[in-house]
Structure formats: structure tokens, C-alpha cells
């Protein structure tokens, strides 16, 4: 199984030569007739393992569309998407699902946890889906400071705690790419800083590439690079334009 070897290679700290995500000239049109919009307009993006990239931009500019094609949830009309060398265009629906399960982690707005499952069971379910029944979710939860909440269901957790469990769930199958959609939308300032700091730390430690869509300019200081999406077009944002970020945008290669 090729997808699995990709995964194993990564956990042994991959060489930086293969980008974790490589999007080339992606075009995506959505809607029909008069309502047809160009959600992605010739977007190119390359993210290295261990790199933490933020994408900002007005709503409706195509940020979620970018995550969708990067995460094998949809295919661009033209252009190519490669995740750690695998061309996503070659995957049919079932293969794309298997690929997402083993190679891509999703962190959604406000966690999007399953209401019926305890924190530990959220992780166990995703591990079992990938055929791993012996996973010990407690260790991963402990790394995210959630050991004491392992038996709690989402309804019993605060927003910040839910988001930590969501991050742990996204990491449980050791993905090479983490796609994060507005993780701090439901959090206060301090909680937002904590959650994004955790993402930055995981990116460095597990050499996982992180692409985070956010509206929250305050958290950009944790990121290696900030990109701006406007009308489906992606461009690099200069450090100066990054607003109140804590300054340095350390480049990790």
C-alpha cells in the first residue's frame, strides 16, 4: 500500500526534498450559470514538512476551497495537487478517503467532535478507521495537556479543550499534512494563542506541514509564512503587512 509507506517514511523524519504540499496553477470554479464564481484562480503553493503556513483573506475569497482541494475533498478544474508526492488527481473517491485517513489531518472550526464520544474515544475511532485498534490515545492527549479530560465528552469540555482534542484527533494517524480551518473562531484571545502555539509546536516536533486558515491576525506571529487570499488569488503577505503579529517570521526550510 503506497499511502502507508509514505506515512512511515514521514514519521522517520522525512528529507525536505519532497514538499508536504505542492499545488500548481490550481483553478476551481463553483456554481452554475450566472452564479458561477472562480473560487481559486491559478493558485500555486508549496509547503515543506515542519512548515506552518497561515492563509488570511476576506470571507468568500476561496480559503475553504483551497483547503478542500489540498485535503482531497475536491478536485481542481485544472492544475495539480500533490501531497507528499502523491498526485491527488489519480485518486478515486474511495482512494481519496483512504488517503485522507492516513495522510491528512483536519482541524475544523470549534473542534467538530462527535458528541457521543469521550475525548479518548474520538481518537480511538479515527485510529480504528485506519485499522489501528491498539492506539493509546492517552499519551497524545497528555502531550496536548488533555490527559485529565480523556474520559469527558465534548459537551463537558470548554471551547479551548475541544479544539485541543480536535488537534489530537487530527494527529492520531501521524499525517504529513494538517489542514486547519479557522481554529480560533470560537475562542477568546488567550485560548486562541494557546491553541495556535500548540499547532506551531506540533509542526516543528512532528515535521508535519500545517496550513491554517484564519481571520485572527493576532495569532499570525506563530506562523512561518502568511499568505493572503483575495478573489481566489493567493499572494505572499510581507512581514510589515502582517499587522500586530509578534514580529519575526522565522523561515524554516
Amino acid at each position: 500500500m503506497t499511502t502507508h509507506t509514505v506515512n512511515t517514511a514521514l514519521t522517520n523524519t522525512a528529507p525536505t526534498s519532497t514538499p508536504a504540499l505542492e499545488i500548481t496553477d490550481a483553478v476551481l470554479e463553483l456554481g452554475d450559470g450566472d452564479g458561477r464564481v472562480r473560487a481559486l484562480d491559478s493558485v500555486s503553493l508549496r509547503v515543506q514538512p515542519g512548515e506552518f503556513v497561515a492563509v488570511v483573506g476576506p470571507s468568500g475569497s476561496g480559503k475553504s476551497s483551497l483547503l478542500a482541494i489540498a485535503g482531497a475533498l475536491g478536485k481542481p478544474d485544472s492544475g495539480s495537487v500533490r501531497v507528499h508526492g502523491t498526485d491527488l488527481a489519480s485518486l478515486n473517491r474511495a482512494a481519496a478517503a483512504r488517503f485522507r485517513l492516513r495522510n491528512i489531518g483536519f482541524v475544523f472550526q470549534s473542534g467538530n467532535l462527535i458528541p457521543a464520544l469521550s475525548a479518548a474515544d474520538q481518537l480511538r475511532l479515527v485510529a480504528r478507521l485506519a485499522g489501528n485498534r491498539v492506539v493509546e490515545p492517552e499519551a497524545l492527549l497528555a502531550e496536548l495537556g488533555m490527559a485529565h479530560r480523556a474520559g469527558h465528552r465534548p459537551g463537558q469540555l470548554s471551547g479551548g479543550e475541544r479544539q485541543r482534542v480536535g488537534i489530537a484527533r487530527a494527529l492520531v494517524n501521524n499525517p504529513s499534512l494538517l489542514l486547519v480551518d479557522e481554529p480560533t473562531a470560537a475562542l477568546d484571545r488567550d485560548r486562541s494563542q494557546e491553541v495556535v502555539a500548540i499547532l506551531a509546536e506540533r509542526a516543528k516536533r512532528s515535521a508535519v506541514a500545517v496550513v491554517m486558515v484564519t481571520h485572527d491576525r493576532d495569532v499570525l506571529g506563530h506562523c512561518d509564512r502568511v499568505l493572503e487570499m483575495v478573489d481566489g488569488q493567493l499572494s505572499e503577505l510581507s512581514a510589515a503587512a502582517m499587522g500586530s503579529g509578534t514580529g519575526q517570521s522565522s523561515w524554516n526550510s
Binding site: 485535503g71 475533498l73 474511495a94 478517503a97 483512504r98 488517503f99 485522507r100 485517513l101 492516513r102 491528512i104 483536519f106 475544523f108 467538530n112 462527535i114 458528541p115 479515527v126 478507521l129 485506519a130 484527533r169
Partner: peptide, 16 residues
Amino acid sequence: THEIAVLRAVGASSGY
């Protein structure tokens, strides 16, 4: 529905 969408995005097969 939303929970199912999340599980499918994560990679659960519809068969499962």
C-alpha cells in the same frame, strides 16, 4: 448530518 460529514472528511468510508 454534520457529524457524518466530519467523519467522511476525516476518511471514514461510507460502507463503514
